[in-house]
Amino acid sequence: QKPIVRVFLPNKQRTVVPARCGVTVRDSLKKALMMRGLIPECCAVYRIQDGEKKPIGWDTDISWLTGEELHVEVLE
């Protein structure tokens, strides 16, 4: 079983991306966001920890988040 990260996107959409070492959250999600007309710069990404949303940086190595759920939200 490959290491993955589940990602909840705006508009009730979601995707799953591989959690590859040395790849940033930005690079992992860029294609999924672009297909939906979004760019990382207009969004914020969060991980859910103890039921709370914790913001994470787009430059975080995605392999550190293996098995986690991330939420991407459009910044107002």
Rank of each mutant, 00 (worst) to 15 (best):
Y46F: 15
L75F: 05
K12Y: 11
D59G: 07
A44N: 15
L70S: 01
C43H: 15
V17S: 01
K30V: 06
K2E: 01
C21H: 08
L75A: 15
I62T: 11
Q49C: 12
R26M: 15
D61F: 05
S28M: 03
R36I: 05
R20C: 08
K53W: 08
R14V: 11
W64C: 15
E69V: 05
E68P: 05
I39E: 15
Q1C: 14
L75W: 04
V45S: 06
D27V: 07
I4F: 04
V74F: 10
K30P: 01
L33Y: 01
G37H: 10
T66Q: 10
G51C: 08
G22L: 03
T15A: 03
G57L: 12
Y46N: 14
L65F: 14
Q1Y: 13
M35A: 15
R14L: 10
P55H: 11
V25I: 13
A44V: 12
E68W: 09
V23D: 05
E69I: 11
G57V: 08
G22V: 01
G67I: 02
R6M: 04
V72K: 00
D59K: 06
A32K: 13
E69D: 08
P10Q: 01
L75I: 11
P18M: 10
P10E: 02
R36N: 04
I39T: 15
L38R: 03
T66S: 10
D61P: 10
G22N: 04
E73L: 04
C43F: 11
R14C: 10
R20D: 07
M35D: 11
D50N: 13
P40D: 15
I48P: 05
R26T: 07
E68S: 09
V72S: 01
I62C: 09
L9T: 01
C21V: 15
L9Y: 02
I4K: 03
E52G: 11
P10I: 01
E68N: 08
D59H: 05
L29R: 00
K31G: 05
D59P: 03
K2Y: 14
L29H: 00
P55C: 09
I56P: 00
T24N: 12
R14T: 10
P10T: 01
T66V: 10
G22S: 06
E76K: 06
R36P: 06
A19I: 08
P10N: 02
V17Q: 04
V7T: 01
V74W: 07
E73R: 07
L29Q: 00
R26P: 00
N11E: 12
A32E: 05
K54W: 05
E52Y: 08
P40I: 15
D50I: 12
V17L: 06
P18L: 15
G67C: 06
V7M: 02
K2P: 03
K54F: 12
P18Y: 15
V23H: 11
K30D: 08
Q49F: 11
E73N: 02
G51Y: 05
K2C: 03
K31F: 03
P3C: 11
E73K: 02
K53A: 07
L70W: 02
V74M: 07
E52C: 08
I62A: 10
L9P: 00
A19D: 01
P40E: 14
I4Q: 02
I4W: 01
L29E: 00
G22M: 04
I4P: 03
W58N: 02
G51K: 09
F8I: 08
R47M: 06
V16N: 06
V25T: 12
V16H: 04
D61W: 04
Y46W: 13
T24V: 04
L33C: 14
P40Y: 14
W58E: 04
L38W: 09
D61S: 04
I39L: 12
C21Y: 11
E52W: 04
K30S: 05
V23N: 06
D61M: 14
I62Y: 01
R6V: 03
R36V: 04
G67E: 08
P40K: 10
M34P: 04
G51F: 05
D61A: 07
K2N: 14
E68R: 10
G22E: 03
Y46E: 02
V16F: 10
D27S: 09
E52L: 07
M35H: 15
A32Q: 06
D61Y: 09
D61I: 03
I48A: 11
E69L: 04
L9I: 02
D59Q: 08
D50E: 12
G51I: 13
R26C: 08
S63M: 04
R6Q: 05
V23W: 06
K53L: 09
I48G: 08
K12W: 06
R36W: 06
E68G: 10
T24D: 05
P3Y: 14
A44C: 08
R6I: 06
L33K: 02
R6E: 05
L9M: 08
E76S: 12
R26F: 10
C42K: 14
E73D: 12
S28Q: 08
T66G: 12
D27F: 08
L70P: 03
I48R: 11
A32I: 08
C42Q: 15
M34I: 14
C43Y: 10
V16R: 03
Q49T: 14
E41S: 11
G51V: 07
E41H: 12
E73P: 00
P40G: 02
R6H: 04
I48D: 11
D27T: 10
V23P: 02
E76N: 04
I56R: 01
C42M: 12
L75D: 15
T66F: 05
L65C: 11
T24Y: 03
H71L: 09
G22P: 01
S63G: 11
S28D: 00
Q13R: 03
I62L: 09
Q1H: 13
L33E: 03
I4R: 02
E76T: 12
V5E: 00
P18D: 10
E73Q: 08
P18A: 13
F8N: 13
Q13C: 02
W64K: 15
Y46Q: 12
E52F: 14
V45F: 13
R47E: 08
V74A: 14
Q49P: 04
V16D: 13
P55M: 15
D61K: 05
P3N: 15
G57R: 10
T66Y: 04
L9G: 01
E41L: 03
D27K: 08
E76R: 09
V45Q: 00
E76Q: 15
E41C: 04
C42T: 15
I62R: 00
Y46V: 09
Q1F: 15
E76M: 03
G22I: 01
K30G: 05
C42S: 14
K30T: 09
N11F: 03
G67S: 07
F8P: 00
G67R: 09
C43K: 00
V74G: 13
A19Y: 02
R47H: 06
C21W: 06
P3G: 15
I4V: 05
T24C: 04
Q13P: 01
P40S: 14
D27H: 10
K54H: 08
E76Y: 02
E69K: 08
R14N: 14
S28L: 01
L29A: 01
R6K: 07
V45K: 00
W58R: 01
P55R: 12
E52T: 11
V25F: 02
L29D: 00
W58H: 02
V16S: 06
V23I: 12
R14A: 07
V5N: 01
Y46A: 12
K12T: 06
H71T: 09
V16C: 09
V25Q: 00
I39R: 12
N11P: 02
W58I: 08
Q13H: 07
E69F: 03
V16G: 03
A32F: 04
I62V: 11
L65G: 04
L65A: 10
I4D: 05
T15M: 09
C42P: 03
V45E: 00
G37L: 03
I48W: 12
Q1V: 13
S63Y: 13
R26V: 11
I48T: 08
T66N: 09
V25D: 00
Y46K: 10
K54N: 14
S28F: 01
V16Y: 09
N11Y: 07
V7P: 00
M34V: 13
W64D: 15
V23L: 07
L38F: 07
D27L: 07
G22Y: 04
D50L: 07
C42W: 03
Q1M: 15
P3K: 15
